[in-house]
Design a binder for these strands. Structure first.
Lengths: 115, 115
DNA sequence: ACAACATTTCTATAAATATTGAATTATTTC
DNA sequence: GAAATAATTCAATATTTATAGAAATGTTGT
C-alpha cells in the first residue's frame, strides 16, 4: 500500500477526539446490535448526531463533529451514507485490517528479537 | 492501555517524515545485521546521523531530524542511547506489538462481519 | 409551500506543529 | 587545551489544524 495513505490514516487517528469517535463507531457496531429502539440497525451504524452526543457525553458542537467525521472518511477509515436527514456512519473493516497488518508486519521485520 | 498514549503514538507516526524515519529504523535492524563494516551493530541500530542522511537520500537538516527523533522517543516508539558522540536509535518492539494488538482487537470487536 | 430538523459549509480565531539556520553543549582526537 | 565532530537547543517563521458560531443546504412531515 502507498505510504501516503498509511500516514493519512495514522494522522486521522492521532487526535484524541477522532480516536474517541472512531472507537465509538467500532464498539457501537456491537452495542447497537442489541438496541431494540429500531432507530439504528447493526448494518447502518449510528448517525452523526448520535456520535455528536456521545463524544463529550453532553454537548458538542455539531460542526466540529462534522469536521472530524469528514477527516475520518477522507482517510478511508469510515463510510458515511446519507439516509434521509441523517448521516449514517460505520467503520471500514478493511482499514482496520490494513493497519493491523501493517504493524504486525513491521513487528516481524525486526530481526533483532531480544529486548 | 491509556488512550492518551495510543493517540500520542499514532500522532507521532501520522507524519510522513517520521513514518519514514521509523520504518527506516525498523528495516535497518535487519539491514545492519549483514553489514560488515563494523560501524553499527544489530543491537545498537543506526545513529541519528545515519538516519539524517537516509531521510531524503542526500542532505537533511540535522536539527529537523533531531526534532522528529525526539517526538518518536516521547511517544515511546523508539529508544535512544548515547554512545560517545553518536545517538544510537532503535525501534521499541513493545510499541509495535501494542499497536498491532490494538488494531487487531478493534477489528475483532466489530460484530457486523458482512460487507 | 412552510416549519422543523440534521448536517454541512463558511468565516474567523486560536493553537499546535514543522522548518530552518545559528548558537550551544558535549565528546573525541590531536 | 584546542580543533573537529555529533547532536541538541534556541528563536523566528510559515503552515497546518482545531474550535466555534452563523449561515446555508437539503430532507421530512404537515
Amino acid at each position: 500500500m502507498a505510504q501516503k495513505q498509511t500516514v493519512q490514516m495514522l494522522k486521522a487517528l492521532g487526535d484524541p477526539t477522532r480516536l474517541q469517535i472512531f472507537e465509538f463507531l467500532v464498539r457501537c457496531q456491537c452495542a447497537v446490535a442489541v438496541d431494540d429502539s429500531g432507530g439504528v440497525s447493526v448494518a447502518e451504524g449510528p448517525s452523526a448526531g448520535q456520535v455528536c452526543c456521545h463524544v463529550t457525553g453532553v454537548s458538542q458542537i455539531t460542526s466540529s463533529v462534522s469536521f472530524h467525521l469528514k477527516e475520518l472518511r477522507n482517510a478511508g477509515l469510515i463510510a458515511m451514507d446519507k439516509r434521509g436527514k441523517n448521516m449514517v456512519c460505520a467503520p471500514r473493516k478493511d482499514s482496520l485490517r490494513t493497519l493491523a497488518d501493517y504493524f504486525a508486519s513491521l513487528e516481524q521485520s525486526t530481526c533483532c528479537k531480544e529486548k
